Amino acid sequence: MTDEELHGALIGQQGSRAALNTPVLVLDRAALDRNIASMAALAAQHGVALRPHAKTHKSVDIARRQIAAGAVGQCCAKIGEAEVLADGGIEGLLVTSPVAAPAAIERLAALAARSPALMATVDHPDVVAAIARALETADATLEVVIDIDPGIRRTGVASAEAAVALAQAIATQPRLRYRGVQFYCGAQQHVEDFAERRAAIGERTDYLCAVIEALGEAGFTPAIVTGGGTGSHRIDLDLGVFTELQVGSYVFMDRQYLDCDLTGDGVVPFETSLAVDARVVSANHDLLVTIDAGFKSLSTDGGVATVLRGAPADTRFAFMGDEHAALIAPGIGATLRPGDAVTLTVPHCDPTVNLYDTYHVVADETLVAMWPVSARGRAR
């Protein structure tokens, strides 16, 4: 059965969260909206634009809420995500991963023809030429930013000289409009200690400034400097180099970011709005019970889940396979019975969200809406 068939009749029934079939992705609407408003206010205070990353939520509904709060658009990791958001009426999209495959370049050109203010990242002159040819066929134009490698050697030009050369290549293509640079220090986002993270981001930002200076001297001063993330947003705002931030996980606050000191004073600036509800399915041992949420329900790259409610505070979580996990604590087998509900943190929100079709949106323990995970599986 679909989520709508299982749960549609529960919308608006008081306390209906307790009746949801598990495992289920649950979103606290009030906490989500407070997170969106808090980040929007912080960015506005510093005169920096927000282009939140939709790879986190993959949701037209959440994108609309972010834009209503002042965001200038959305970032998308892949063409497929951008296509879904464009179909949902979202404008100001930036595809943050370089597009290189011929079929993907054709789709990018087609999307440029129908998506106002679409931007894409580029990091190689051959790709610049290929995109320009596709735009000619599609009779479209496209804004581009140069991706700068922050040192992880994943994507991006590897030097200031390469950035200037690429800007020069872009300038020769009449259907491309150079807008600026992208710089995302992904390796530093989850450094838990604030001072250590600040030092690392500061050093990388000095490098970014050197690239920007070289571009300016060559006549390519970037209008847009886009990047940053939830882990570095306070530091990025303080350093004052970015013109816009690509924050993503702040809307949900998964365990990876809850483990980080994001502000330098130990205060958690955003609320946990996303969770997975599960149920005990077996309770035949004193030290553990088994729940119905395993590898297919929670990402595994961000550690393990923790229990938000429904089990003792000292309960440990351990995966027990595709469909199951164990909750381990002294006497838990006598405390919890089959059918009891537990609420779990999400270890890493992006891949966990991609496991589900639907957000079950709740307010005061009542299911109030069901939002599709619009771009689920759109990895191409």
Rank of each mutant, 00 (worst) to 15 (best):
A49C: 06
A18G: 10
S59L: 05
L42W: 03
P52I: 05
I62P: 07
G70R: 03
E91F: 05
A43H: 04
V72Q: 02
T56F: 01
L32C: 04
G80D: 00
L32Q: 00
K55Q: 09
L93I: 15
R29S: 15
G92Y: 02
C75W: 01
I36K: 00
L20M: 05
A9G: 12
L93K: 09
A43T: 14
G73V: 13
A19S: 13
L20E: 01
R34D: 09
R17Q: 14
A37W: 02
A31P: 08
G88I: 07
V26P: 06
L25R: 07
A31D: 00
R51M: 10
Q13V: 15
D87N: 10
Q66A: 12
G92C: 05
L42Y: 05
L25Q: 06
V24L: 04
D61P: 06
T56I: 06
G47P: 07
G47W: 01
H46L: 09
K78Q: 10
G15T: 11
T22G: 12
A69H: 04
I67V: 12
C76S: 09
R64M: 06
R51I: 15
D61Q: 05
S38E: 02
L42A: 10
V60F: 00
L10K: 08
G8H: 05
I79V: 15
I79E: 00
A49F: 07
K58G: 12
D61G: 14
V84T: 12
N35F: 07
A9E: 09
V24T: 10
V48D: 00
Q45D: 15
L10C: 13
A44Y: 01
T22E: 01
Q66M: 07
Q45T: 15
G8K: 09
T22P: 08
C75K: 07
C76H: 07
G15K: 10
T56H: 02
